[in-house]
Design a protein around this nucleic acid. Structure first.
Lengths: 117, 117
DNA sequence: TTCATATTCAACAGTTCAGTTGAATAAGGA
DNA sequence: TCCTTATTCAACTGAACTGTTGAATATGAA
């Protein structure tokens, strides 16, 4: 009956990762292509170490992956995790919407009956 | 240049709100129709006060609204905020995907040229 | 080897967060 | 009025989070 904990944990991590404006800007930047830690840190007024940890949070959430290029550790967007989030959200948006449509139908029917009587 | 803070704050609040399994289960429950605090608290092993605060977090994030029915404060899903989240995510998913398609094209072209030479 | 660059690790401080319990408030019902 | 139900507020605790600075590690260049 309960949602499987691993799924829950992954959603926890992914939603929490995106709950920070710095990390969202990093994701936005990565959508246009991979970048190194230094490049990602450049627009921010915080230390590189702080950005490095933000990237680790994103990596732990499965939202980005890393490769190696000499001393650099380029960061790449991992769109699958983003897909899991929209999928979760849209599931319940859809249920809610369908329920609304059903209520509309019931309402329409009762109004129809009222007019008939 | 910077994203407008109010938007940022709303995304912060909404993503953070969904980063908790209790709150996600509340949203899931509400997708099937409104419910009172007591009803929402029933499946959980935590105090009603804790659930009441979870609901306040969701309300502050714009994900739910409340009405009044005697002593009860029924909670309703507010699908617009959910829409804002999928919209943010899909924006960058799309950018990433388009960039990939563009890279594929370039690759296909260069392979084509190689064959020609 | 020595120096420079890129990145991470470790320890610390301040803040926020989820949970608890106990008291307060709001609205009805007897 | 008194009692019950539904919900929230307040104060407290322990855990988690974000940022800092300084040291460590990894790789390449001279």
């Amino acid at each position: 009956m309960a949602a499987s904990p691993p799924d829950d944990d992954r959603l926890d991590a992914a939603f929490a990762a995106l709950a920070d404006p710095v990390r969202r800007r990093i994701v936005a930047r990565l959508s246009t292509g991979p970048a190194t830690v230094n490049e990602l840190a450049e627009p921010f007024a915080i230390s590189i170490q702080a950005v490095s940890r933000h990237i680790q949070v994103l990596e732990h959430a499965g939202l980005v992956t890393r490769s190696r290029d000499a001393q650099r550790r380029p960061v790449h967007l991992a769109p699958t995790a983003l897909e899991a989030l929209t999928s979760w959200i849209d599931t319940y948006r859809l249920i809610h919407e369908q329920r609304f449509r059903a209520l509309d139908d019931i309402l329409a029917t009762s109004i129809h009956k009222e007019k008939e009587s």
